[in-house]
Amino acid sequence: MTNLDSMDMQQLQGCGDYLRSMREKAGLSQQDAATRLKTPLRILQALEAEQWQQLGAPVFVRGQLRSYARLLGADISEYLHQAHLEVVRPAELVSHSYTSGLDRFLESFKRRAVYVVLTAVLVIPVWMGARSQLGSADTQTTASLDVVPATASAEVATGPAPASQPPARRAPATPYVASMVPISRADAPALSFHFNGDSWVQISAPDGSRVEQALMKAGDERNYAKGEVGNVVLGNATAVEVQQAGSTVDTTPYQRGSVARFTVSSDGSLAPISN
């Protein structure tokens, strides 16, 4: 504690004796009082012995004294008032910095100028490169290979120019670029099953061997190549979407009740299983 704190704490002389007398009057031992306060016995002993230096800062001493006095029904406000421990005033925060409106405007202007410069450095080269590519692309013309240029058609209709006549100067022809980009298409599986609900399936190969037999869950999917499937049995057939080479197949002709049975020929066509 500082010297000022020590002088203030000296004004609490007699407070410990007063609390001790109030405790004895209440018929409590120090251990009983410490148990009720839920505080260590040494803290209570230091309060009654007025050994303030063992209790730490004055704010801690004030809190312990008030709790002890509240337990005993004692009034120690006079002691606290004399020791100037009644009120703890918070520290005042004083700002020593000041920013004028002009400084704030200049700072904002600097930040915006940096943003403009960075935008110009990054965007303009990209824009120039894209413009050059678009310009070069505009010089080409896409045409069908079946279209004959007008100059060639005129030569066919009128015949070639006489040898004595000097050839007429022609404007440079614009190059024609034929569009021959192939369309890519992924090959769909020969037979696929999409399960929208639980369904029991039994799939056999053309030679009769078992390919799959299981209970499928909603969201499952099975795909088979051409020639891999011979016979198919689907339980809860209405919950199964069958596709053949990417096209949905109506399994109603193959259903009896909720079970669909059909065979798959070598060419991929479906037929009901003969009983």
Rank of each mutant, 00 (worst) to 15 (best):
Asn3Pro: 09
Leu4Trp: 08
Ser6Arg: 14
Asp8Arg: 14
Met9Glu: 03
Gly14Pro: 03
Cys15Trp: 02
Asp17Met: 13
Tyr18Trp: 08
Leu19Gln: 01
Arg20Ala: 13
Arg20Asp: 11
Arg23Cys: 00
Gly27Asp: 05
Ser29Pro: 01
Ser29Phe: 02
Gln31Thr: 11
Gln31His: 03
Ala34Ile: 04
Ala34Cys: 04
Arg36Asn: 09
Leu44Ala: 05
Gln45Ala: 13
Ala46Ser: 11
Leu65Ala: 01
Tyr68Cys: 05
Ala69Thr: 03
Leu80Gly: 04
Leu93Thr: 09
Val94Ile: 14
Ser100Phe: 01
Leu102Val: 12
Asp103Tyr: 13
Phe105Cys: 09
Ser108Tyr: 07
Ser108Val: 10
Arg112Phe: 10
Val116Ala: 09
Val117Glu: 06
Ala120Ile: 07
Ala120His: 01
Ala120Ser: 06
Val121Ile: 13
Val121His: 02
Val121Gln: 03
Leu122Trp: 07
Pro125Thr: 08
Met128Trp: 15
Met128Gly: 13
Arg131Phe: 05
Gly135Lys: 14
Ala137Gly: 08
Ala137Pro: 02
Asp138Thr: 11
Ala143Phe: 05
Leu145Tyr: 09
Asp146His: 11
Pro149Arg: 12
Thr151Cys: 13
Ser153Tyr: 13
Ala154Ser: 11
Pro160Tyr: 13
Ala161Lys: 15
Pro167Arg: 15
Ala168Glu: 14
Arg170Glu: 15
Ala171Thr: 10
Tyr176Thr: 15
Ser179Arg: 12
Ser179Met: 11
Met180Arg: 15
Val181Leu: 12
Val181Thr: 13
Pro182Val: 04
Ala186Asp: 09
Asp187Ile: 15
Ala188Asp: 04
Pro189Ser: 01
Phe195Ile: 06
Gly197Ser: 05
Ser204Tyr: 08
Ser209Asn: 03
Arg210Gly: 06
Ala214Ile: 07
Met216Arg: 04
Lys217Thr: 08
Asp220Arg: 01
Arg222Ala: 05
Gly227Ile: 00
Val232His: 00
Val240Thr: 03
Val242Phe: 01
Ala245Lys: 10
Gly246His: 03
Gly246Arg: 02
Tyr254Asn: 00
Gln255His: 02
Val259Ala: 07
Val259Asn: 03
Arg261Lys: 14
Arg261Leu: 12
Thr263Val: 10
Val264Ile: 10
Ser266Gln: 13
Ser269Asp: 07
Ala271Glu: 07
Asn275Thr: 15
